[in-house]
């Protein structure tokens, strides 16, 4: 029986990952652990002493509030980086996409294999964070099982459109700026560290439009069993639309790049 083309394209990305999986997985586990101990416990001790902290955090401790957001922010960070330099490399440095396009794989299938890989990579990163969260009584819950796909979805909502865009670039000059001016602000203002109700009034609706906020809300809600059906649908549809539209555009930009 034949294997779907995108899966065969994915095999290459995955095999490459297998050469670095040990160090990568260790990092996927250690990084959130250090971060949670430092921020969650350290900063948390200060925050929880505030008078109306519990009320502002909806009855959660700061650790409980912060930790699930890490599922979404980690997915965002990992996915955006996968969607920049490695995409440039596939077209320009190692030229692996060109190698694929010389075979029966179509440009759309080349893009599909990459999208599948991005979903895999985001999942691995999110599972690492979830494993850390499971170590702490305050975040240990069956909701983590639901939060993992939500985190991965957040990742592909970033990687898909960014992949489409990266495929139109001739150089990697703009990538650091993406990190600095898009990813970093989202990280800081996307509701991972504090409720966005704490932002100035005019910023709040902007924060609600960012994909990261939707991902953070989903993950936090899942871990603490506080997801309403309506809001869950809104978040999921929003993120899935970004991923789907990004992937459809990537199919086009890949076809253009590979035919040039």
């Amino acid at each position: 029986m034949s294997t779907p083309a995108a899966v065969r394209a994915w095999e290459s990305h995955f095999t490459l990952y297998r050469t670095i999986w040990k160090s990568n997985m260790l990092g996927a586990f250690l990084q959130p652990l250090l971060y949670l101990v430092g921020m969650g416990l350290g900063v948390g001790a200060l925050v929880d002493r505030g008078n109306d902290a519990e009320q502002l955090l909806d009855g959660l401790t700061y650790f409980q509030f912060l930790a699930p957001g890490l599922l979404a922010t980690t997915a965002m960070m990992v996915s955006t980086n996968e969607a920049m330099w490695p995409v440039m490399g596939g077209f320009k440095w190692m030229r692996g996409f060109h190698a694929q396009a010389a075979t029966p794989l179509s440009p759309g299938e080349v893009a599909g294999g990459l999208a599948l890989w991005h979903a895999t990579k985001a999942s691995i990163a999110v599972v690492g964070v979830a494993a850390v969260l499971a170590m702490f009584g305050e975040t240990r819950s069956f909701g983590l099982l639901l939060a993992v796909p939500f985190g991965a979805l957040t990742g592909v909502a970033f990687s898909a459109p960014l992949t489409a865009w990266s495929a139109t670039r001739e150089t990697d000059n703009s990538f650091p700026a993406i990190n600095r001016f898009i990813i970093m602000p989202l990280f800081l203002f996307g509701g991972a560290f504090y409720p966005i109700s704490q932002l100035p009034d005019w910023m709040e609706p902007i924060a609600e439009l960012t994909p990261l906020w939707h991902g953070v809300e989903l993950c936090r809600g899942a871990v603490h069993g506080r997801l309403g059906l309506g809001s869950t649908l809104v978040h999921v549809v929003y993120l899935a639309s970004l991923a789907l539209i990004g992937w459809l555009i990537a199919r086009i930009t890949f076809a253009r790049k590979l035919a040039a």
Binding site: S2, R8, L16, M94, Q100, P104
Partner: peptide, 27 residues
């Protein structure tokens, strides 16, 4: 079969892996 001007091999993978993965593109 295509031998492009610049080798498009995955430098971090083995010779064997490069071959097998390429074969997989042909199913």
């Amino acid at each position: 079969g295509v031998v492009p001007q610049a080798d498009q091999l995955d430098e971090q993978l083995t010779v064997e892996d490069n071959m097998v993965l390429y074969g997989r593109y042909f199913d």
